[in-house]
Write a protein that binds this DNA or RNA. Structure first.
Lengths: 211, 211
DNA sequence: TAGATTGTTAATCGATTAACAATC
DNA sequence: TAGATTGTTAATCGATTAACAATC
């Protein structure tokens, strides 16, 4: 009986993909039942946290038994939205954009790539799809109604691109630039990936290892 | 007078790169003085948090005045370790590895890329550097003593690669694979980038926007 | 039934925010 | 000096962990 509490904390949400991954592996290995204790040992969490996390969404377990792996895997998948096929475009076909376009398994994550854009390289094929001209972005959005945009352009170009997209009704973003989308468009949903910040955090840890 | 408290929380550390970025921008715009209040407004934080964060490392401000932008920028840079040049290798020259190799500004982040590895494509140049054979990884490490490895191979290959690297004394990782390095090598320093987890978190937010 | 394990409430821990004396 | 703003302590808030009654 799935709940829908609407104020699930980000801490919990950020753990869901990892649960999903571990359950997928268990399933693949033919394990069809697991207790919070056993899962906690495998994942390096507390059993308490796992039970708390899962109970944000519903009582998926059974006292005295634990959790059914396939069922829980499916439930978490649904919660995450992997059964969606959000029409999605990628803006910026530099090295990063190309890598994202070719490297990610969008379909199994719930996304459907319907267009790749760049202001250069128009017509060049990436992963079998011809790059479209960023100049025609607005027009494309009117016709094809993408729901999600992946921003792989540098910060300088991002402001203009995002402005165009929001005007066309695209308000969901996977943002690799340092442009702060939510600060400028509070209604937007945005997940940031700041690779250079992550690298600097690593540097901090290396530099201060022996403090 | 920089402190060195050695138990700075990860919450604080993860905010440092963003402070560094904002201060760099202020500096570029010719602003040479800022109060925690003004900075908090620009960054969308509380002034209190900024003062708490900075005071983990030392009293960089001056009552009645605020903070000197250039000085604070420099201090945070030093804390983050941007003046280092950690000899670094990248393993895996698929789309992602290539993008990382060409896209990131390693030098200004405190890293120096001294080798690119792949089990195929040996000799092909990426960013002016010829790809080396992963089979010769151990040998290369003995000779060149890299300190950091960037793991851009799939999870299946990661276990073997990381084992080799740890044996050769490489214990600092920027890890793009789902292989859990710290679980297997507790002495390792590792910063994970799980792109597919990030994408799934975005999907959750889109899917539950109107809950 | 007895043992196991959940769902959930209460206790603890840590991080953020507020307040204010110190001081430039 | 008076006004501004820090550094730091105290209060609050939220997240994690522990405990245990409910129940399969």
């Amino acid at each position: 009986m799935p709940k829908n509490d609407n104020n699930i904390s980000m801490s919990v949400i950020k753990r869901l993909p990892r649960y999903y991954r571990f359950l997928g592996n268990l399933k693949k290995n033919g394990i069809d039942r697991i207790s919070s204790k056993e899962l906690s040992a495998r994942m390096g969490l507390t059993a308490s946290q796992i039970r708390q996390d899962l109970n944000c969404f519903g009582g998926f377990g059974q006292q005295g038994y634990g959790y059914n792996v396939s069922q829980l895997y499916k439930e978490i998948g649904t919660i995450l939205g992997v059964n969606n096929a959000h029409p999605t475009i990628i803006i910026g076909m530099g090295n990063l954009g190309k890598a994202i376009a070719t490297h990610m398994q969008f379909a199994s994550g719930g996304f459907d790539i319907i267009g790749l854009f760049d202001c250069q390289k128009v017509g060049v094929k990436v992963n079998g799809k011809a790059i479209l001209n960023s100049a025609n972005l607005a027009e494309f959005c009117e016709e094809n109604k993408p729901q999600v945009a992946i921003i792989c352009v540098p910060e300088e170009s991002a402001a203009g691109i995002v402005s165009t997209l929001v005007k066309c009704g695209v308000t969901n973003f996977w943002n690799f630039s340092h442009y702060d989308i939510v600060a400028n468009y509070p209604e937007a949903v945005c997940e940031n990936v700041h690779l250079s910040d992550s690298l600097m955090t690593l540097n901090y840890q290396i530099t201060h290892k022996d403090d």
